[in-house]
């Protein structure tokens, strides 16, 4: 094993700019079990079908992506990014337009399709609660902002992204169909009322740790993370009331060396079976409309696509347009 790594390192040292060979392509995602699932459900099958080797890289880093496009030294071919970033990067000219003669978008959930990106997987922000730790569980976003009836710490996603601002506005009584354009002043005013009671989670795993240890007995979570906790034997209550959807997207950086292979890879990754396999492995929802039919009904019913009755779609286009403005204000507000 040591010898092979050393050889690999040597090869990398000798080959100058290029990492992938002509018949290889590079897929970049966030690492951990999510990327392992993407490898099993998408990359391995792609290699079996086409003979093209898919090398795994990561974690996704927007700074690195921008730098490689600017310097015309793109080493990534297909990348998993957040949905709002995908729209923004597309507008900034950092991405190749997708080839929809290769990728069949007729079966894809139109909420997550743009000229430069298609949905990789999607998830909902839902209200999760460790029922063993508290006497009453919050059921609606307003409950999470109600410290009198639901005292204690609550946890929210730390980064500037669709989810928390929408939740604050919904809690403040804004109708789900009147959310956009976002009233930021109102949202931050509402968030101010519970700022001292918030513990921020910066990664999915941390949110699970906070809930499992009852450090924060309730809060806003990605739905798949709660499914995993419940499967581990914890008493977790999930409220899908006004669950807020957001998605990860698959994109191809501008100037990718293996553009054609990347298009074919994305076509396979968004096919019904590949999306169903990925969803079964991770608890995220498929972005192909034909996938649920291929899945075990027991698993399918835990996914966000079964919760459309009371569902709010985060507006990726609005977010892409205002990503910088909201982000700058968000981090400044947090630092206050």
């Amino acid at each position: 094993m040591r010898k092979t790594t050393f050889l690999a390192a040597l090869t990398a040292a000798v080959s100058l700019a290029g990492v992938a060979h002509a018949e290889d392509m590079v897929f970049t995602s966030w690492g951990g079990t999510t990327q392992d699932a993407q490898k099993a459900a998408w990359a391995d099958k792609f290699t079996a079908e086409t003979g093209t080797n898919v090398l795994m890289d990561g974690p996704t880093d927007y700074g690195k992506l921008k730098a490689m496009v600017e310097a015309s030294g793109v080493t990534w071919d297909a990348v998993d990014v957040e949905g709002d970033y995908a729209v923004q990067a597309g507008k900034q000219g950092l991405l190749e337009p997708l080839d929809f003669t290769v990728i069949d978008k007729s079966k894809l959930d139109p909420r997550f399709v743009t000229d430069h990106s298609v949905g990789s997987f999607y998830y909902s922000f839902v209200i999760g609660c460790n029922a063993d730790a508290v006497s009453a569980c919050p059921k609606a976003w307003a409950d999470l902002f109600d410290t009198a009836n639901f005292p204690g710490k609550r946890t929210f996603y730390k980064w500037s992204a669709p989810g928390v601002i929408e939740a604050a506005l919904l809690a403040d009584g804004v109708a789900p169909d009147k959310l956009y354009p976002l009233d930021l002043d109102r949202a931050f005013k509402k968030l101010d009322t519970i700022k001292g009671d918030i513990i921020w989670w910066s990664g999915g795993a941390q949110s699970q740790q906070l809930l499992a240890s009852a450090e924060a007995p309730f809060g806003s979570f990605w739905n798949g993370r709660l499914t995993a906790l419940a499967a581990d034997g914890l008493t977790i209550e999930t409220s899908w009331d006004n669950n807020i959807t957001a998605a990860d997207s698959l994109v191809v950086p501008k100037g990718a060396k293996n553009k054609d292979a990347a298009m074919k890879f994305i076509a396979l990754a968004t096919s019904a079976q590949a999306q169903a396999d990925m969803a079964a492995a991770t608890g995220y929802a498929p972005t192909n409309l034909d996938s649920p039919a291929l899945m075990d009904p027991e698993v399918a019913k835990t996914l966000p696509d079964q919760q459309k009755a009371s569902q709010v779609n985060a507006d990726m286009n609005y977010w892409a347009e205002h990503r910088d403005e909201i982000g700058t204000r968000w981090y400044a507000w947090q630092a206050q």
Partner: peptide
Amino acid sequence: PVRIWTTLRQDL
């Protein structure tokens, strides 16, 4: 460290 970083964030 890169493996640890991504694994901690994703899976803990």
